[in-house]
Nucleic acid binder design. Structure first.
Length: 417
RNA sequence: GUCUGACUGAUGGCCA
């Protein structure tokens, strides 16, 4: 037996699990030990080879070599959860219980997590209750998993309520705070998120630059760049290093409020600080800001200056600029950029084409716009509902309601929104 | 002598 362990364990560690499996299944009966089988099953699970893991389990059952135990079921259920084979995991959970084994907090948490990922929040909550019925105490991770699921499902209020509930039993971790802060920011409730951040720091949990950037983006989304700037100064004062994403978020927020001068100033400050260099996204935000203001000269100037800091324009850069020109009815300039980007080896995508189509529609060139739709399909660039809406809006604007109706019935191959 | 669970950041398109 000892020699089997000496072989099987290293084989599993070296991810040569198939060889390990051969060893244990073809050995003489007395070596068919359960821990060896469990080792193989769990190794397959870790390698996300769940079919193989389940096959070993089934062989165990079929050949009666040894019978699955707590560890076998735990490994399989958690492995299945990880690869999102939730239904199968639930079946094994049922089997496990019916065989008299008691899934532990970890297993329940893994199942709840998988349910949350599938947005099956009601069932997730039911499992929390089931834990209580089985005298299992949910811990921080269990609560955090559910809180995170609720946040991602847009049910932030329930998440906040669950936070209060969990506080009576355990202490939130940085992960808990991060989930909630992100959820509140997505729900445009950045000031509540900020309160949580302060509480997080006060209670000794350490946020990271991601946490701060989430908050900055949250304030920007709510058009509160000033609050975002305050968070920025605070993170610097607390010794965190803003990176290019942090700067870019702020720059984008300022641009979206039309505060272009401040955005440019911050851009300069970023370079001067020496801690990071702007990238394509940083430029794209600035360019988008200038385009929105109709300042196409400045926008084009930025395009030309990207190379100075080692950035290259991408499809977003060009689309932003083209859209800017389209909105000013400068279709020739937009087409020039289309050619330029193609020459650079960049491929226009569905957004690029939709922008162009919108420009054409605004100039009453509806048949040209519809023509692009055909081009897109030929290039297997799939139109989205925005693309169709653009055309529909064009028809409506031109008072061609009957055409719009016909287009919707005959051309739209996605559900309207 | 075998198993174990969680989170967070940026840019472009339609209408309103």
């Amino acid at each position: 037996v000892t020699s089997y362990y000496l072989l099987v364990r290293p084989l599993c560690k070296a991810k040569m699990i198939e060889d390990a499996e051969v060893l244990i299944t073809e050995s003489r009966k007395k070596f068919r030990e359960l821990p060896l089988h469990n080792l193989v099953v769990s190794s397959y699970c870790k390698g996300k080879k769940l079919d193989a893991a389940v096959a070993v389990y089934e062989k165990m059952v079929a050949t009666n070599s040894c019978s699955a135990d707590f560890v076998t079921y735990t490994s399989l259920i958690q492995g299945l959860c990880k690869v999102k084979r939730l239904e199968q995991a639930l079946i094994f959970l049922g089997k496990m219980v019916s065989k008299g084994f008691h899934p532990d907090v970890y297993t329940y948490t893994a199942v709840i997590h998988a349910l949350c990922v599938e947005n099956r929040l009601h069932e997730a909550r039911k499992f929390l209750e089931e834990m209580a019925n089985r005298n299992l105490t949910p811990n921080v991770v269990t609560y955090t998993v559910l809180i995170d699921g609720l946040c991602k499902g847009g049910r932030v209020d329930e998440a906040v309520a669950l936070l209060s509930k969990m506080r009576k039993k355990c202490v939130p971790t940085a992960v808990t705070y991060n989930s909630l802060i992100s959820g509140l920011c997505k729900a445009e409730r950045a000031s509540e998120a900020y309160d949580l951040l302060e509480e997080m720091v006060y209670s000794g949990c350490i946020p990271d630059i991601f946490t701060y950037t989430t908050l900055i983006t949250g304030f920007c989304k709510s058009k509160k760049s000033d609050d975002a700037l305050r968070v920025f100064e605070q993170l610097v004062a607390r010794g965190f290093r803003p990176d290019v994403v942090t700067y870019s978020c702020l720059i984008d927020g300022l641009c979206k409020e039309g505060r272009l001068k401040e955005a440019i100033d911050l851009f300069g400050r970023m370079i001067k600080s020496g801690s990071c260099m702007p990238n394509t996204v940083t430029y794209n935000s600035l360019i988008s800001g200038f385009c929105r203001m109709g300042k196409m000269d400045e926008a084009m100037n930025l395009l030309e200056r990207m190379a100075e800091t080692g950035s290259s324009p991408d499809v977003v850069t060009y689309t932003t600029l083209m859209n800017g020109f389209c909105k000013l009815a400068r279709l020739d300039d937009a087409y020039d950029l289309l050619n330029q980007m193609t020459r650079k080896g960049l491929t226009p995508d569905v957004v690029t084409f939709t922008s162009l189509m919108d420009g054409l529609c605004r100039e009453n060139r509806l048949s040209d716009a519809v023509h692009i739709l055909g081009e897109m399909r030929r290039k297997s660039c799939t139109p989205t509902v925005y693309t169709y809406n653009t055309i529909l809006d064009g028809y409506c604007r031109a008072n061609q309601l009957e055409e719009a109706r016909k287009f919707m019935l005959e051309e739209m191959d996605c559900p309207p929104n």
